[in-house]
């Protein structure tokens, strides 16, 4: 890694950028505290690479998550100057010569340093029945695959691009106020299955949508869609589901189940 950050050695050698990390080691710290590091600056360097430089050369005890380094695994979410970002998709050049301030993702409990406990988020994702529920008079496997036209796929494709990074939960003020809210990514995922032509589970999932802690905790702030690194637009998914929920409410008035 260090070899990668050194190519412009002679010219860049004395350019440094300050990186402040909010540290928290539960076994020894009562409260999180900021720690400042000086990292050699390189315009190609991502925030994640800066963290790796710090871990390799300055302080090996700093904890953070990452895997793919290419905005696909969703592990490296953190607050960069108070904005939820993927560490591998945010670059030092967009902050230099100012200092960058790194903190654990907001709205999640800190586990250690930049690592948060995503348990609640994962639970929400599981709760919305994120799998295709086929119609009961389903065809036999021997009858072949389910075909879908490009138009049918277009209806849900955008909402299926989520990488479960949790940035939208960190951006959502309603989730911050009330952890019962199902939240942006889970609702976008729910919309993804309800809008899939192969799925017959809409009625089951609408029960989740129709609750106060379903779509109705959302006040359409829209910040989730701003921070989403994959263009999922969870706010739009929720608005679509609000319309569906309203239709469902009207139907329910005349035909209670």
């Amino acid at each position: 890694m260090s070899a990668q950050t050194m190519p412009a050695h002679s010219t860049m050698a004395n350019k440094v950028i300050e990186v402040e990390i909010l540290r928290y080691r539960p076994e020894q710290d009562d409260n999180p505290f900021p720690q400042l590091f000086e990292v050699p600056y390189n315009p190609d360097m991502s925030i994640l690479e800066a963290l790796q430089y710090i871990k390799d050369h300055l302080d090996s005890t700093v904890s953070f998550r990452w895997s793919c380094r290419m905005a696909i695994c969703g592990s490296c979410g953190l607050m960069v100057n108070n904005i939820p970002k993927l560490g591998c998709k945010a670059f030092l050049r967009d902050y230099y010569p100012q200092k960058v301030k790194l903190e654990a993702l907001a709205n999640f409990p800190i586990e250690r340093d930049l690592v948060v406990d995503m348990g609640d988020f994962i639970k929400k994702l599981e709760e919305i029945k994120p799998y295709i529920i086929p119609a009961t008079d389903d065809k036999c496997l021997s009858e072949g695959t389910y075909k879908q036209t490009p138009e049918q796929m277009e209806k849900y494709k955008q909402f299926s691009m989520c990488i479960n990074c949790g940035l939208c939960y960190s951006a959502c003020p309603q989730y911050g106020l009330d952890k019962k809210f199902t939240g942006p990514a889970a609702l976008a995922l729910l919309a993804r299955y309800n809008r899939d032509s192969r799925d017959a589970g809409s009625a089951e999932r609408m029960k989740i949508v129709n609750q106060e802690e379903g779509v109705w905790s959302c006040t359409f702030v829209g910040y989730c869609s701003v921070v989403c690194p994959k263009g999922v637009d969870p706010a739009a998914a929720i608005q679509l589901l609000k319309v569906e929920s309203s239709k469902d409410y009207l139907i329910g008035m005349f035909k209670p189940d």
Binding site: K207, E212, G214, Y249, G252
Partner: peptide, 9 residues
Amino acid sequence: KYIRSHEPI
């Protein structure tokens, strides 16, 4: 148990 919200109105 899911409780329906009256928010649609």
